[in-house]
Design a protein around this nucleic acid. Structure first.
Lengths: 173, 173
DNA sequence: ATAAACTTTCAATTTTTATTGAAAGTTTGA
DNA sequence: TCAAACTTTCAATAAAAATTGAAAGTTTAT
C-alpha cells in the first residue's frame, strides 16, 4: 500500500472510531491528519486535505486544543498559524482520559450523590426505596472505582504504564 | 428527595451520559428505567414512563438485549413480554466492555494492521514513510494493550476485579 | 382456520448535530 | 492610521440520527 492511501485509510478509520465515542467525525479526522503529518499544518492545508470549510477547521482545531492534544505553532515571519498534533500516544491517551473524566464521570457522580439519599415517602414502599438505594450505591462504588483508576492512570508516568500495568494484564500463571 | 424524583433524575443523567458515549439517549434511558425498576416492565410501562412510541421501545429494548444487559421475561398465561435489566453492575460493565471491544476496538485494529506495511514509493521520502510507520506502530501497541486489558477484565471474576485491581489503584506506598 | 393480542419493521417525519460561508474581529507591518 | 492577511463567530443550511405510527408480521387460544 502507498503512503497516501494508508494515511487516507487511517483518517477514515479514526473518524469512524470517533463517532462511536461521542466525538464528531471531523474532529477525529483533523486529529488523525495531524497525527500522521510529520510537520505542522496550516488551516489551508487542513481545509484542502479533508475538504472542509475554514470555519469547520477553526472550530475543530480549537476543540482539539481544549483537549490538549493539538498545539498551535507560530513561525517567525509568518502571519498564519500552524497546528501540530501531540505525537506521544501515551500522552494523547492520558489527555483524552483526563478530559472525559472531567466532562462525563464527574457530572454523573454528582447526580448519584444527590439522589443517593431518598426520603421514606407514603407513595413508595420501604422495599422499593431500599432496592433503589442499593442500586445507586453499587453504581456509586463502581463510578468511584473508575474515577480512581482514571486518576491513577493520569498521574502514572509512561514507564509505569508500560511495565507494571502491562505485566498485570498479561495472561500467565 | 422523593423516590420518584430520584428515579427521574437518574434516568435523565444516565441518558446524558449515554449520549457522550455514543449510545442514543433513549437507549440509555430505557436501560436506566429498567435498572431502577425492581420488577420487569412491559412495553406499555416503558412507553408511558418515558413518553416514547411503541416502535421506539421495541428498537431500543432489542438493542439492549443485543448488548446482553436486558432480558426478556415471559410470564405463564400472559401474552405480552416483560423486560428486566441486569442488576449486577459489575456484570453490566463487563457486558458493555465486551460489546464495545467487539464493535470498536477490533475494527480499528484491523485497519491498523492493514496500513502498517506501506511500500516505499517515489512520491514519499523514506523519512516520511518511517515516521508514519512508527506512529502507526505505537498506536498498534496501545490498541493491543487496551484489547488485552479489556479481555482480562472480561474474563476476570468479580472477586478479582474488586480486590486485586482495587488494591492496585489505591493511592499509597 | 380465524381472530385477538401482541411485536416488529420501516418509510416518513422530526429532532439534533454538524457544517458552511460571509461578516466581524484581530494582528501585523508599513 | 490604514490595509492586508489572517482567524473567529454565528445565523442559516445541510446532513445525520432518532423517532413515530401504521401496516405487516407473529403467536396463541379456540
Amino acid at each position: 500500500m502507498q503512503l497516501d492511501e494508508a494515511k487516507r485509510r487511517f483518517i477514515e478509520g479514526w473518524g469512524t472510531l470517533g463517532s462511536a465515542w461521542g466525538v464528531s467525525r471531523t474532529m477525529a479526522q483533523v486529529h488523525a491528519l495531524l497525527l500522521v503529518s510529520p510537520g505542522a499544518l496550516s488551516t489551508e492545508d487542513i481545509m484542502e486535505q479533508l475538504q472542509i470549510s475554514r470555519g469547520n477547521v477553526s472550530l475543530n482545531v480549537r476543540a482539539l486544543m481544549d483537549w490538549g492534544i493539538v498545539r498551535k505553532e507560530l513561525r517567525p515571519g509568518e502571519r498564519r498559524e500552524f497546528f501540530s498534533g501531540e505525537k506521544d500516544i501515551h500522552r494523547v491517551a492520558t489527555l483524552i482520559l483526563q478530559e472525559r473524566r472531567k466532562r462525563e464521570l464527574q457530572p454523573i457522580m454528582r447526580v448519584l450523590g444527590e439522589i443517593s439519599e431518598v426520603e421514606p415517602s407514603p407513595t413508595a414502599t420501604p422495599e422499593e426505596t431500599a432496592a433503589f438505594t442499593q442500586m445507586i450505591g453499587s453504581i456509586q462504588s463502581f463510578a468511584n472505582f473508575a474515577d480512581r483508576a482514571a486518576s491513577t492512570l493520569i498521574k502514572a508516568d509512561e514507564n509505569w504504564f508500560l511495565s507494571t500495568f502491562m505485566k498485570l494484564m498479561r495472561p500467565g500463571p
